[in-house]
Design a binder for these strands. Sequence first.
DNA 1: GTAACGTGCAACCTTCAGGTTGCCCATTAT
DNA 2: ATAATGGGCAACCTGAAGGTTGCACGTTAC
Lengths: 108, 108
Amino acid sequence: MPDRLNAVFSALADPHRRYVLETLARRGTATPTELAGELPVTRQAVAKHLGLLHAAGLVDRRRSGRESRYRLTPGPLGEASTWIERVGAEWDGRLSALRRHLEADGRD
Amino acid sequence: MPDRLNAVFSALADPHRRYVLETLARRGTATPTELAGELPVTRQAVAKHLGLLHAAGLVDRRRSGRESRYRLTPGPLGEASTWIERVGAEWDGRLSALRRHLEADGRD
DNA sequence: GTAACGTGCAACCTTCAGGTTGCCCATTAT
DNA sequence: ATAATGGGCAACCTGAAGGTTGCACGTTAC
């Protein structure tokens, strides 16, 4: 089930998608056409990005009339952040253990 | 220079690379051959992954004799984590502002 | 010395990501 | 009713990611 992590990190790997997420976080909601107006790509490209973000669970679509507004659903961001923090913590733990061990031994 | 974010998130998007990072965090150092023994890919594939991780600034190589040991350099992980936290914080801030602004419209 | 081991590098293959154009459907405006 | 707008879907193109095999070089062991 770490497939979710794949989807999330892959989603975050593209600058256009990060821009979309930042915009949604700041503005609340946005439509594909709005976003395409602020990016150097076509509306269809933005739609693809939104589809990917939706597949990763990072955005939520909601049609109102003929336009569809997308909203941020930041849950999976937490999973990604947690993974990073965990690895960092394990590294720090190992480092301090090593340092503790070195104060008696004095070798690498 | 958010190019760094591209490299880091791209690096984290692959499960084999995440395994490498987790292993380095837990074990301290590892060689390409060691890692290849624990992954369903060839040593050369692992070497490519390590090259990518190095380009992202996530690992550090150090040759000792005929083997080269890789070590985690978690700095860029902090940048990635910071980006995520920032977006999450902006979203939360917007949410609470919205909630403060309207106390009646609890429909979703 | 010669053999074996650990690496890195280059060439190649296949799959997929990001973009584009083109078409069609639903909704709003005139 | 007709035109225009917003959106999604499909086909197609191009470049790069992930993998493999093969080879060449430095290092350790016999």
